[in-house]
Design a protein around this nucleic acid. Structure first.
Lengths: 153, 153
DNA sequence: CTAGGTGCAAAAGGTTTGCGGTTAA
DNA sequence: TTAACCGCAAACCTTTTGCACCTAG
């Protein structure tokens, strides 16, 4: 369903070293937020992360979850994924990849980009532009919803 | 700077026919909003569209601008472009294309995709997914800001 | 010890909605 | 004529912020 990348271990290491050494404190809240994200790779919204983190640490606040998610994003462990005006979704997959969102069930999956270099050949921009970040996203129906949509007719 | 597509005339026709025949009323407000968008192809936000439309029609309201933009988007004449959590930008370019945003001046430009088919070869998704929409976006520095950033150092 | 983080509550910012009056077709 | 649309103001929802207290390093 969702591309498995098994970078959990790698990511844990990245957290311990990057956060601790980069001038960022390794607080219980940040760890819980990151754990909540790794636990279920379903691109949860900030509120969903909050609810999950709350189970393990009932005193955590929503504002802290937002702050932690921003810190983790700055550190590079987390990517913030936006589809239209909906709430931001968060993704602990540091590899370059795209995203697919099902317009029916609103689930978000990672999309592999085997040839990242090919992507940069697709678009044309005068060469005095400096591109620092590129991303792409797809929308449509996931297999479950294709079936469900056909049944509904 | 921005890819010129000279589809103004085509677009006008599309508005007159599509909106009028698709069960949508051709109101003064919708026309002004669309005109404001065609006038300056700089991907304005809803508030910017509002300010421009207001010059020609002082009684128009912001809520109406939002409503008109949504209608025009549904009709297919306008595309809504989102970068992160910033205000939505609106684009009257119906051709398939991507977007570039300068992280320094926040201007948004269209990005040509000469080979749209090549884009769909870049990503891999199991074939029981149905993809209805794909888009990509770039971030970086526009030529003006590359120069300005160098001067500042 | 102290810079940086947390929790709370309040505010911000963009967008949507409800409603009575208006208008395109 | 009348369903669709407009203007206004109030509501909504996600995210950010100010401040007093707390804690990792």
């Amino acid at each position: 369903m969702c591309a498995e990348l098994s970078l959990d271990d790698h990511a844990h290491t990245a957290y311990d070293t990057t956060v601790a050494s980069g001038g960022f404190r390794l607080t219980r809240q940040r760890r819980e937020v990151y754990e909540a994200l790794l636990e279920t790779r379903d691109h949860p919204s900030a509120v969903q992360v909050f609810m999950r983190a709350q189970k393990r640490m009932p005193t955590i606040s929503l504002a802290t979850v937002y702050n932690c998610l921003e810190t983790l994003t700055q550190v590079g462990l987390v990517r913030q994924v936006n589809f239209d005006r909906g709430p931001s979704r968060f993704c602990p997959n540091a590899h370059p990849h795209g995203h697919f969102m099902c317009t029916r069930c609103h689930h978000v999956h990672d999309v592999d980009v085997p040839d990242a270099a090919a992507l940069s050949r697709v678009w044309q921009l005068p060469n005095n532009y400096v591109v620092t970040q590129s991303e792409f996203s797809l929308r449509g129906l996931c297999p479950e919803c294709v079936v469900a949509a056909n049944d509904a007719e």
